[in-house]
């Protein structure tokens, strides 16, 4: 699969940013080289301590998190992990967050041409920080501006991650595609909250958190379905994937690849198992590739554009 500018994935199962650290944390129990790609923890220009605890809590069919982009900063990330990543067969896509366009551009400039960095996923949609980019995700002009600025700063494959916390995602997705993004990923978490047991106040240290897990899959499916009908670049679906049926749903709705996130916490071996299950499913249907599975649920002409570059053979 080619997500643009030479970002070729051996399979369409990725692990989502924030759920897999820097790829090293689960290496004892997961054969990470079999993943399609790893999206690392959100990375910012300067180190960030993140939000006050508690930061996570389980909710019906999901969880809330308010990590707040804790990370050691781009320089430390490169120093600690880039050499290791360069030795892996699995591509590592660096998730980039910032407070200003200049922040994003500076981080991406540091990533450009570094061996071990296969691509960039722009996190313009973190709901958990005061100034963490969500302002870029809810306004089509701002989204286009940050995408264009980053596009000018690097030749790295550029994925932009969409927020579900908007009324209509379509004009924003179109603006980002027109501004030069190679692919879109959708969706980030939904803004939510929980109260303390005695209802004396918010439970999370940050008041608000991002909802993820199976609870948000219908929302993610709707957004992938909508975006696939208006853009001509590949879409990577994220949101509540826990099994092969979810993968097949997202492909049918127009996604060309899928990220597994929250489900990893329960079962770290799930993404690799889904690679095998998708291969078996293609075999069962007599398909040489999963390309025919993409966009089958879209109305009218199926999203020819969204399946561009699918080269994966089971």
């Amino acid at each position: 699969m080619d997500l643009g500018r030479g970002l070729r994935l051996r399979n369409p199962l990725l692990v989502a940013s924030g759920t897999f650290g820097y790829g090293v944390e689960y290496a004892d129990v997961v054969d990470i080289e079999r993943l399609g790609a790893i999206c690392c923890k959100g990375t910012t220009l300067r180190p960030r301590q993140g939000n006050r605890p508690p930061r996570v809590t389980e909710t019906p069919a999901g969880m809330l998190n308010s990590i707040g982009l804790q990370n050691p900063g781009v320089d430390a990330v490169l120093e600690r992990y880039a050499a290791q990543w360069a030795g892996w067969r699995v591509p590592v896509i660096v998730n980039v967050a910032g407070e200003s366009i200049e922040d994003y551009v500076q981080v991406v400039r540091k990533l450009d041409l570094v061996p071990g960095i296969a691509g960039v996923e722009l996190n313009i949609s973190c709901p958990n920080v005061g100034k963490g980019g969500l302002q870029f995700a809810i306004d089509q002009d701002a989204a286009a501006a940050v995408t264009r600025a980053v596009r000018r700063a690097t030749e790295l494959p550029l994925i932009v991650k969409l927020s579900p916390n908007v009324a209509d995602i379509r004009p924003i997705a179109v603006a980002i595609a027109d501004a030069g993004a190679d692919a879109l990923s959708a969706i980030n978490t939904l803004s939510g909250m929980a109260l303390r047991r005695d209802r004396s106040g918010p439970f999370l240290g940050n008041t608000y958190g991002g909802l993820s897990g199976p609870a948000i899959k219908p929302v993610a499916l709707r957004i992938v379905y909508e975006v696939a009908q208006v853009v001509g670049i590949p879409i990577i679906a994220i949101g509540g994937v826990t099994g092969l049926d979810d993968v097949l749903d997202f492909l049918a709705a127009g996604a060309v690849a899928v990220q597994v996130g929250t489900a990893i916490f329960a079962d770290p071996t799930l993404p690799v198992r889904l690679v095998d299950e998708l291969t078996a499913e293609c075999g069962r249907r007599g398909l040489a590739s999963y390309r025919p599975l993409v966009g089958t649920a879209l109305p009218g002409r199926t999203g020819a554009a969204s399946s561009r570059g699918v080269e994966y053979r089971p």
């Binding site: 944390e25 993140g50 930061r55 916490f265």
Partner: peptide, 21 residues
């Protein structure tokens, strides 16, 4: 602390130390 991944990946289970989370 409430915990997510338990392997250091998600940064969900922090407490506050004198040097930060």
């Amino acid at each position: 602390q409430n915990m997510g991944c338990a392997v250091g990946a998600c940064l969900g289970c922090v407490i506050w130390g004198v040097d930060g989370p």
